[in-house]
Amino acid sequence: MTPKPHSALIIVGHGSTTNPDSSTPSFEHAESLVRRGLFGDVQCVFWKEEPSMRQALHLVDQDDIYIVPNFISEGYFTRTVIPRELELTGPLTQRAGRTLKYCEPVGNHERMTELLLRRAAEVAPGVDPQKTSLLIVGHGTNLNDNSAFAAKREVDRIAASGIYAQVLSTFMEEEPLIAKWDELTTQPNVVVVPFFISDGLHSYQDIPVLLGIEQEPTAAASQRSVFRDNPRHMRGRTLYYASAVGTEPLFAEVILDQITAFDLAHPALP
């Protein structure tokens, strides 16, 4: 990407009032982008943490501002909450001499497939994918949220590649339920990759209980000395549980890709 020293980048995350790890990937992607010196400034804002979305424009000096949602899918947050809190009128908002450029959420980018495959390979090194069931686990919800659709889209792409013997989308709150992972899978090895932004409440504390590798939610990831013991031999399978896809450092690249995509879609802008 061509450096944009006169532009600011604001990464928007969900954050949490209870889990310190929810916002960590957004901050780490921001720190990595600051080190690369591509923007005049890089900041994070959140729904449930500080700094808040409402404070976003007080954080940066620049008048040209890219806003990238660090969300796994389009939905209620990207379509309703973020535009309302940032007072956006569309992809492009002009306000008080400032130009706000609202990009697509990171999870929409086609490179998600590559990052999910990378996570799966990292967590189970040397394991034959042709003897492996790969489960992509998403939230699944009845909210106006396309996380289930996004997870299914990724599963279709991975399945089409033929790398894994079996690829399935599973969910915390809707069928097929991740809790039934042993009934759903056909292969001796099972790799589970959370299609989440962070190792926060859902992917670090809730899903391990649903998988049966913890009896009850543990402390947050950052408060434990050991991240996960992999693999686990249980229910007649060898189970590998990965870190959330959003903790992958290459997510910072996807943030840049979404900015490039925005510029391509709006070529008349400076």
């Binding site: 954050g15 949490s16 009032t17 889990n19 310190p20 449930k48 943490e49 500080e50 947050a220 950052s222």
Partner: peptide
């Protein structure tokens, strides 16, 4: 991130 007892500080 956390106070002296290790509790998360959502409000800094």
């Amino acid at each position: 991130v956390a106070d002296a007892s290790g509790e998360f500080r959502p409000i800094k």
